[in-house]
Amino acid sequence: MATQHTGGAPAARTKIVTTNTGRILRVNLDEASAPGEAAPGAPAPAAPAVVVTDPARRADVLFRKRRDEGHELSSWWMIGAFVVTSGLVILLLSGVPGVA
């Protein structure tokens, strides 16, 4: 028989926010309140939350680069790279003896 878990701290109040770039953020309403006012029953935050202005500039993101509007890499470059790589593989494999 399953029982409902009723012990422990209640879940924090959150709100889902979509940024201009389409990124979906979960904002804790207790931390997002004004610094002078505290939520009822909640302790005051010790330090302000760190705000990341651009997710592509985070330290754990290695090869992603946020480009300006209109300067994104065209998808045709990726299609062309696939065609060239496929042709090179076929060309190299045509020299292997014993392949039908």
Rank of each mutant, 00 (worst) to 15 (best):
M78C: 02
S86D: 09
V84W: 07
R66F: 02
D60G: 13
G87I: 02
R57W: 00
A81Q: 09
L73M: 05
V89F: 12
H71P: 00
L62R: 08
V83C: 14
T85V: 14
R57G: 04
F82E: 12
D68R: 11
D68Y: 01
D68A: 14
R67E: 07
K65R: 14
T85D: 08
T85G: 15
S75L: 13
L92F: 14
L73D: 06
W77P: 01
F82M: 14
E72T: 13
G70N: 09
F63N: 13
I90Q: 00
F63V: 13
L88G: 09
G80P: 04
V96K: 01
R67D: 01
R64F: 09
H71L: 08
L93T: 06
L93I: 02
S94G: 09
P97K: 05
E72R: 15
G87R: 00
S75T: 09
I79G: 00
V84E: 07
K65C: 11
I79H: 01
V61L: 11
R58T: 03
D60Y: 08
R67A: 03
G87E: 00
L91I: 06
G80M: 13
F63S: 11
S86A: 13
S75P: 11
L73G: 01
E69C: 10
A56F: 04
R64D: 12
E69M: 11
R66K: 14
R66M: 08
S75R: 07
D68I: 02
V96G: 00
L91E: 08
L91D: 08
M78D: 01
I79T: 05
A81H: 11
W76A: 05
E72Q: 15
I79E: 00
L93R: 05
T85A: 15
W76D: 09
G95E: 05
S74F: 03
V89H: 00
F63R: 12
V84H: 09
F82Q: 04
G87L: 10
L62C: 10
G87D: 00
W77G: 05
D68F: 04
F82N: 10
L62K: 04
I90W: 03
K65S: 11
L91T: 15
V61S: 07
R57P: 01
E69N: 10
D60V: 03
M78G: 09
R64C: 04
R57A: 15
E69K: 15
R64W: 02
D60S: 09
A81G: 14
R58K: 05
M78Q: 01
E72D: 15
W76S: 02
S75C: 03
T85R: 07
L73V: 10
A59R: 14
R57S: 14
F63G: 06
G80D: 06
R64P: 00
E72L: 11
G80N: 08
T85Y: 14
H71N: 08
L62T: 14
S94L: 12
V89W: 04
L91W: 15
G80H: 02
R58S: 06
V83N: 04
V89C: 04
I90E: 01
D68W: 01
G95Y: 04
M78Y: 05
S86G: 14
L93N: 05
T85K: 06
G70V: 15
W76Y: 02
V61C: 13
R67Y: 06
V96C: 01
A59E: 12
F82G: 12
S86T: 13
D68L: 10
K65P: 04
